Amino acid sequence: MENKVYDVVIIGAGPAGLTAALYAGRSNLSVLVIEKPNTGSLLMAHKIENYPGILGSPTGKDIYTLMKEQTLKYNVEFVNATFLAFDLFGEHKIVKTDIENFLGKTVIIASGWAKNGSKKLPGEEKYLGKGVSYCATCDGAFTRNMTVSLFGKGKEIAEEALFLTKYSKEIHMFITDNCDDSCDKALMETLKANEKVKMYYSSELVEIKGDEFVEEVIVKINGTHETYPTQFAFLYLGTKSLKELYGEVASLDEQGYIITNEAMHTSIEGIYAAGDVRSKHIRQVTTATSDGTIAALEAIKHVLKKHNLKAQYS
């Protein structure tokens, strides 16, 4: 998948995301679905008796499995990952996850509804914007001559750490996995050879502390709590709220849902929202599939118009 530019990147594999994937895949577009395994309202449904054309009382997982199998017939690709952020400054939209970054000409947000305010680590919310950041490429220039810390899986934070070597005085990489299989070996060797960089494996961030700004982090490594001085903490741990995740690409209503028009457009061209994550009155499997259909057709039109591709409509 590295460096591949997808026509459509879909965040979420619920009924909205899978429907969008089906339509886009069947139109001969390249499609990637980013999903978190075993999560979502559909998978938690014990019985579904009101989905048209499906007799009996199948579980949500049964319907999910059928939907996914149908998309796979049209070469839709899936990856198990946690969405972290967007980078919208280049030619293509960069979708950042905890395993790697993906490029898309269009993006459909179909991540479903989660409580508006994911579980935060102690100190995370207090120091957001005061040393806590979710994007080194966004805030790296503010770290000149500072000591910084990054937390997350090795492949994701390795790229961010390399960027920070242009600015930061000292870089602590607190890696949550062993990184042996997933990391770019050449990139890791480059970082290990840089005297600014220190790596810590099997790390767990416990708390972020300071006064007005971040001053130190408490990290559990091999069962032992250690304190490390730092002035910036870059987090790639999936603890963002919906506002933090999507606020840069869409307006949110008072409950935290993404506001779109009837064509599923957000405030950024080429980015759409569908399903339970969208601001609307009714949330059912059937309304999610409807949203997914509309979002996919809009994305297909966008790709055809902007990139002169040929697709099969039906």
Rank of each mutant, 00 (worst) to 15 (best):
T224V: 15
V285W: 00
L18S: 03
Y257L: 12
V148Q: 01
A20R: 04
G12L: 09
N116C: 03
K47F: 08
I94T: 10
K47Q: 14
F163E: 06
K120A: 15
I300Q: 06
G210E: 05
A81G: 07
K36S: 14
Y167Q: 05
G292I: 09
Q312F: 12
G123W: 05
L242D: 15
G123K: 02
N308C: 07
N308P: 01
M67K: 01
M146I: 02
A20Y: 08
E244G: 12
V132C: 12
I54R: 02
N222I: 02
Y257H: 13
T165D: 01
M1E: 07
S241T: 13
V79R: 08
T59N: 00
L237N: 09
Q312A: 11
E226W: 01
K61A: 11
T147E: 12
Q312V: 11
D177H: 03
K166V: 00
G104R: 07
T286P: 00
S182I: 13
L43K: 13
L187H: 05
L162H: 07
G292L: 07
V285R: 01
M264D: 06
V214H: 05
P15L: 03
K301H: 12
M264F: 02
E91L: 02
K198F: 13
I300P: 04
A250R: 11
A45T: 15
E226T: 14
L235E: 08
N145T: 08
S202T: 09
G53I: 12
K93Y: 08
D181L: 15
Q255N: 12
Y272D: 10
D184T: 07
K61H: 07
Y200I: 11
F142M: 14
K153P: 04
Y257F: 15
R144L: 12
K220N: 15
V148T: 09
E69C: 00
M1L: 07
E69N: 13
E100S: 13
Q231I: 00
F83D: 01
K310C: 05
A186D: 13
L297T: 11
P122N: 11
T147H: 05
L128C: 06
K220S: 15
L162V: 03
D211F: 05
